[in-house]
Structures are given as C-alpha cells and as structure tokens.
Design a binder for these strands. Structure first.
Lengths: 224, 224
DNA sequence: GAAAGAACTGAACACCTGTTCAAGCAAGAA
DNA sequence: TTCTTGCTTGAACAGGTGTTCAGTTCTTTC
C-alpha cells in the first residue's frame, strides 16, 4: 500500500506554507522582526506551533525565506521601473527612486529585512538580499558609465553606498516620519534620489530633470 | 559613625568602572557586540559577574555607555580634522574621510556600535550616537552651503544619507575586506569620500582635489 | 582592636522562546 | 470499512544568559 499525496492535499500543504509565510510577513510589517515569533505566527496562520516545523526546519529558515520573498518582490519592481525608462541614466534614477518608495512604504518591514536585530542568524539571506539589489543598481550605473553619462568608477562600491544612503535616510533611526503627508514623502524621495544621482557623478542640472522624470510615474507613493 | 569613601577608594572604584568599560570595549572590538556578555566581560575585568551590577544597573546601561564613549571619541576626531581644514568644503571632506577611516580601522567595533543585533535595547544611545555625528556633518554641509560652495538642500537628510553610505560601503555585509592592504584601503576611503562630496553637490573636478587633500593627512589609515 | 558599613563574590535563579514528541486525527489505499 | 501512513496538536522541554542575593571580605570609624 503506497501512500500518495492527492492533488487536494498538495494544494492544502502549499496553502499552509504560504499562510505561515504570509503570517510571518504580516507580523514583520506590523511589529518588526521581533514580532516574528513562532507561537504568534502560528496563531496568525491558524496552525499549532509544532506545525510550523513541518514546513520550516527552523525559525532561521522561516525568516530567511521571508527575507528572500520580500527581496524578490522589490527586485522585480526595481527591474520593471528601470526597464521602462528611456535611457541608462533614467533607468538608474528609476531604480533608485523605486527602492526609495518601496522602502518608505513599508518601513518596518524594510528595517526588519535589512538590519533589525534578530535572535537567529539570518546573515546569509540578508547578504543575498542586499547583493541582488546592489547588483541591479550596480549594473544600471555600469550601463550609464558605458553610455558615457557617468565617470568611470567602482560601481559595486557606489551601488552599495547608494543603498546604504537610502536606507539610513529613509528607514534608519534618524529618518523623520513623513508618512501621512504624501507631498513631504515625495519631496523626500526626490531629495534622496537627487543625492544618489549626484553621488555617482550625474551633473546637478541634469540630475534634477531625471529625478522629476523618475519620481512622477511612481503611482502610489503610499500604501503597500 | 559615618562611613566616608577615602580618596584611594574613590580612585579604585573609578578604575574598576573604567576597567569594566574597557573590557567591554575590547570584547566588542574583538568579537562584536555579541561578545559583550556580562560573565566574559567580568572575567576580562578581573571582577565577578555580580560586581558589574554595582557599576552598571543593567547590561543595557553598560552597552549604552560603551556606545556613548566610542561615539565621543569619534566625534572629537571628526571635529579636530574638520577644524584643521582651510575652508568649509575642505572641512566637509575632512569630516567625511575621518569618519571613513575611523570606521574602517575598527570595523567590528563600528558595526557593533551602529547596527549589530544586541539582545538588550540600546536604541536610544545608538540614536544619540548617530545624531551627534550626523549633526556635525550636517553643520559642515551647512557651512559649505552658506559659503556658496554647495546648492541649498536639506542638510540633515543629506548628512544622514552620507553616514548611511559610508557605513554600508565600509562595514556593511557587502563591504570587501580591504584591511591588510593600505593602498586599497586608501583608495576605498577616497572613493567613498568622493561619492559623498559629489552627493551634496560638489563639482566633480573640485571634489577630486578636496578628497586628495583630506585623505592624505590622515596618518594612520590602519590601526586603532 | 572591634563594630559597622560598603563592596565583592559566584552559584543559583528566572525568564523567555525555539524546538521536540507522544498522542490524536485526517486522508489515502485496499 | 479497515488498515496504514502522514499530518497536526500543544504541552513539556532545553539552553543560554541577564540578574539576584546571602555570605564573605575589605574599609572606615571610634
């Protein structure tokens, strides 16, 4: 007698897995990583604590996958925005402002993913997450350099610095809380995008134009 | 019969307190914040675990004071370097490269002070620490703006972004390990300083000159 | 030198969560 | 239906570390 998972069961299992991940994500979005504890997450997902361990070997794995998921979403959004831009400099501007908007619209989640203290070791997935975004931005800078729009430079270093600047300015502990005021929020995104573009060598005048181009299309400067 | 602390005792108590703090600092410099645990620190300071609590109400207080101490040192170094510079733009360049060098020469400590996960809440002192440095850099940017060297901007935001850029690029998880090669280390400091100056609006050509001016005087690009 | 107060010691305590596992339950095969 | 397999449960467990405190040692006062 061979036991076989029927379609329905497979689907249910997958749904549960997603539910657990979603519960973790909700918890992180509301209360940061410290709120991602097995018991509360299990409750949120309508599951017993032990069940979580049938889907994720450990809390570290759960959080790692959460980080990977959020990171994937962000990377996709950045790519989409950059690919839609008319030229390499615009693409860079679009990429940067997309990161800024994403990070701003889900600050707690972003902070949790990036840097919030967690009791388990998720360094690896955090590094992977950063590496993806940094790689994307670096390749955009590279394209602009090749197009002759920017001076030659260590693009990896530049991209890393840019990411750090965005994060610290927007979700770091010194970030002023601009949520609730869309106008201020937009100004902030513009300001950091401008800083970023100038940092890699875009001329000031040109940068201002690019920033406006890049920020305006971003429809929802608030919300998920 | 009134008990009075004699001079000798007062001195010994102060010495112990310093010893505990120093032990904590050593531990942090060697193994990051996770190595700052009461028992090991006590051993290092030649003291029993319980004694630590006669000097610091809690681990959080110990670490907070450690952060404050390191932060004070760094701020002083930045001020010194900037004040010695010939003009506002040079001062800014000097401030930025000083932060870069400091952070690079004690990466584990810097990472611990800034962002490493800690099991107790030291958010307040971390914020204070950042605020001091950011305030200093912001005021240097401000001076350069007033001198007409830079475009008007949100200096607080810019300074915060700069700090984030330095940290992420130099001690973040993606930072390439350049220690051991002084030449590369100097290049890195130059590169991030250049990025920072351009970000706030220094023209590229001028920035290059400022960077060289600012980085060259920094004697020890390695060591504590 | 003796009494009293302060400082120090370090083993025991407390607490918090991630993790486990024996028992119960649901779902597939015959 | 009945047997087997695997999923689910949730209370108990485990481990590590900050914190306490009764007992000891050192300092001061008279």
């Amino acid at each position: 007698m061979v036991y076989r998972r029927t379609h329905q069961v497979v689907k249910r299992l997958a749904a549960r897995r997603s539910a657990i991940l979603a519960a973790a994500r909700e918890a992180a979005a509301e209360g940061g990583m410290s709120a991602v504890q097995i018991a509360p997450v299990a409750v949120r997902a309508n599951v017993a604590a032990g069940t979580v361990y049938r889907y994720f070997p450990s809390k570290a794995d759960l959080i790692s996958e959460l980080i990977a998921e959020v990171s994937r979403d962000e990377l996709a959004a950045v790519r989409r925005a950059a690919d839609a831009a008319p030229g390499p400099s615009s693409a860079l501007a679009a990429a940067v402002s997309t990161v800024a908007v994403h990070v701003l619209s889900q600050r707690k989640l972003a902070w949790g993913i990036l840097a919030e203290p967690v009791d388990v070791d998720v360094t690896a997935s955090r590094i992977a997450s950063r590496r993806e975004i940094v790689g994307e931005i670096a390749s955009r800078i590279d394209a602009a350099v090749r197009a002759g729009h920017l001076p030659a430079q260590d693009t990896q270093l530049a991209a890393t610095a840019l990411l750090g600047a965005l994060h610290e300015a927007l979700v770091g502990p010194l970030a002023t809380d601009n949520l609730g005021d869309p106008a201020k929020l937009r100004d902030t995104v513009q300001a950091v995008t401008l800083l970023a573009l100038r940092a890699v060598g875009v001329m000031d005048a040109r940068a201002r134009g690019l920033v406006v181009q890049a920020v305006l299309p971003v429809k929802s400067l608030v919300g998920a």
